[in-house]
Nucleic acid binder design. Structure first.
Length: 126
DNA sequence: GTTCTAACA
DNA sequence: TGTTAGAA
């Protein structure tokens, strides 16, 4: 996860988020207090929401409109976080394996080239 | 003027 | 959840 990712850049005041989502500032703060979003803060302690925060709030709103209660949303969020952790672990493992294969290929390749050169040179001395 | 937290209807 | 009070 990069901080430079446009999705996660802290950009919007709570008023903009209110206009974007149709939620009241009261609801937005309430959902934050339950961990549904984690907006950044300015030096003056005012919330700054990212595109990702807005998207998540829209998801929350839709779920609420469909009759899902707070506990249900919390479960979905927890399972989603679990999935993200799993994916990140898999990415790191995949990266490790890739590095290992690359390292081995490099060394095997050098040994192979060296033996080839020796083999080719040997033709001139026989 | 806007947003924050806390508290109460 | 809405609304209000007093402070940033």
């Amino acid at each position: 996860m990069e901080q430079s990712d446009r999705l996660h850049m802290p950009l919007f005041s709570i008023r903009i988020v209110k206009d974007l989502t149709g939620l009241t500032p009261r609801q937005i703060r309430y959902y934050e207090s339950h961990g549904f979003v984690q907006p950044a803060r300015t030096e003056g302690n005012q919330r700054l929401f990212s595109f990702a925060d807005v998207d998540r709030l829209l998801d929350i709103k839709q779920l609420l409109e469909q009759g899902v209660n707070m506990a249900g949303i919390k479960e979905m969020l927890d399972s989603r976080r679990k999935e993200e952790r799993k994916n990140e672990q898999e990415r790191e493992e995949s990266k490790r394996v890739h590095e290992k294969i690359k390292w081995e290929a490099l060394h095997q390749g050098n040994a192979y080239k060296a033996s080839m050169i020796q083999g080719q040179l040997s033709h001139f001395f026989h």
